[in-house]
C-alpha cells in the first residue's frame, strides 16, 4: 500500500484538527501539523513530505511566503502545495497559485472537497 505524509500548516487548532481528521481517512496517510510558516519550514527540513496543505493568514510567516520559500528551494520545489483560503479571498488564492501552489480548497472546508483535491494531486504525482 502506498504511504503518504502530509504537512498541515494552520494556526488555528480547530482547523488543524479538522483537516488532519479528514486526511486520516486516506489509507496509508501520516499527518504532521505545524502552527505557522516557520514551524512548517523546520518540519520540512526534518522529514520528507508528499503534500503540503497550508492556510494563508498565519503569524510569523504566512502561507504565501511559505509557498514561495518552498518553490524557490531546489530540494523542496517539487512538493505539491494546496492552499486553504477563505471563500471570497480571490486575491490571496490567485497569488498562491501564481507563486506555485498546485490547488486550493475553500473554507469552510468540505471534507469531500478536500479529499478529492488531495487524491487528485496524489494521483497526478504517482
Amino acid at each position: 500500500m502506498p504511504e503518504y505524509t502530509f504537512l498541515v500548516v494552520e494556526d488555528s487548532p480547530t482547523m488543524r484538527q479538522l483537516i488532519s481528521f479528514a486526511l486520516k481517512r486516506i489509507p496509508g496517510s501520516t499527518i504532521v501539523e505545524a502552527g505557522d510558516g516557520i514551524d512548517a519550514l523546520k518540519k520540512l527540513s526534518n522529514q520528507k513530505f508528499d503534500v503540503i496543505l497550508t492556510d494563508i493568514n498565519m503569524p510569523l510567516m504566512d502561507g504565501l511566503k511559505l509557498v514561495s520559500m518552498v518553490r524557490n528551494d531546489p530540494t523542496y520545489k517539487d512538493i505539491p502545495v494546496i492552499v486553504i483560503t477563505t471563500e471570497g479571498a480571490d486575491d490571496a488564492r490567485e497569488r498562491g497559485i501564481s507563486l506555485g501552489a498546485n490547488a486550493y480548497v475553500s473554507k469552510p472546508i468540505q471534507t469531500q472537497d478536500l479529499l478529492n483535491t488531495v487524491n487528485e494531486i496524489i494521483k497526478s504525482k504517482a
Binding site: 516557520i38 519550514l41 527540513s45 530540494t75
Partner: peptide
C-alpha cells in the same frame, strides 16, 4: 538570489 529553506532557518 537563491535561497534554501535551511539557510533561511539558520538566518532566523
Amino acid at each position: 538570489g537563491n535561497s534554501t529553506i535551511e539557510a533561511y532557518l539558520k538566518a532566523l
